[in-house]
């Protein structure tokens, strides 16, 4: 059915999918066969097909998180064949297409694994720990209204671009999932860097990094050991430079802030 592509022969695949009723129960991998999968389908569309089949057979569909299906909302997850968001670089699961697989392949699909992310059900996990890290200081404390004119704060373009690069994080949690240490340091560093780079964020930079890191640690994420898997698997290419900047921010905050508690 593909557009101009005549070589889109449908595929048959074997899926091994993690099934788990809820957070309190144990789960296991369950094998399913899916047939007539078009190479033009997205990975999640393949799951739609599986779920429709399961439902028609009176079996329970697989629960998974997804929403925008265009790679920006950060809701989809899935650890596919040992990789966060699957084998294609710079791609979320929703943008991964079946043409990256071959007829007859076996695909193992697991939820994000980290103690800070509990499994809700099947492939859906609780990533609210990331929200709580944001709540610990990922903002500039300005109320609505009473702010200066937007052009009163010139920001050099390279700085603005760098801040933007950090700000594109979609909070999907792939960095945590891929990290051997289940560390959320890449995620944390993206927000800390974005705001530390911009004049607006500099005012609170010390308390921000102290509080956000404290929250990161309290949530039970691991420590960064500079492996780099996070950045390699990040679907939006958040750079490891942000972690260096986070470390710098932390050292300077701890050395100079008034916080003696």
């Amino acid at each position: 059915m593909a557009g101009n592509n005549p070589n889109s022969t449908p595929m048959n695949l074997t899926l091994k999918v993690w099934r788990q009723k809820n957070a309190k129960t144990q789960g296991q991998l369950v094998t399913y066969n899916v047939k007539e999968i078009s190479p033009d389908m997205s990975f999640l569309e393949m799951f739609d097909v599986l779920n429709e089949d399961l439902l028609r057979q009176g079996q329970e569909p697989v629960a998974f998180d997804h929403d925008c299906r265009e790679g920006i909302c950060g809701m989809c997850s899935m650890y596919i064949n040992g990789r966060a968001h699957g084998p294609e670089k710079g791609t979320t699961t929703c943008q991964l297409h079946m043409r990256k697989f071959k007829d007859g392949d076996t695909i193992v699909v697991e939820p994000w694994r980290a103690n800070a992310f509990t499994v809700h059900k099947d492939l859906s996990t609780d990533r609210s720990a990331l929200d709580r890290i944001q709540q610990a200081g990922g903002y500039v404390s300005v109320n609505t209204g009473g702010v200066p004119d937007a052009n009163e704060i010139p920001i050099p373009k390279p700085i603005a671009d760098k801040a933007f690069d950090a700000a594109t994080c979609i909070q999907c949690g792939a960095c945590v999932a891929a990290c051997k240490n289940a560390s959320a340091m890449l995620f944390l560093s993206a927000k800390v860097s974005q705001l530390a780079l911009l004049p607006q964020g500099k005012v609170e930079r010390k308390t921000r990094v102290e509080n956000m890191l404290a929250q990161h640690d309290a949530e039970g994420f691991g420590s960064c050991t500079n492996i780099g898997a996070c950045a390699a698997e990040c679907p939006v290419g958040i750079s490891l430079d942000n972690i260096a900047m986070l470390n710098r921010e932390y050292i300077s905050a701890k050395a100079t802030s008034d916080n003696i508690g």
Binding site: K16, W18, L29, Y79, N81, G82, R83, P87, V108, E110, R113, A114, N115, A116, A178, K180, N181, A182, S183, G220, F221, G222, A229, A232
Partner: peptide
């Protein structure tokens, strides 16, 4: 920080 391990993991990638 990760008590349940992945069944399949390809960190070499």
């Amino acid at each position: 920080a990760r008590s349940v391990k992945y069944a399949v993991n390809r960190p070499e990638q």
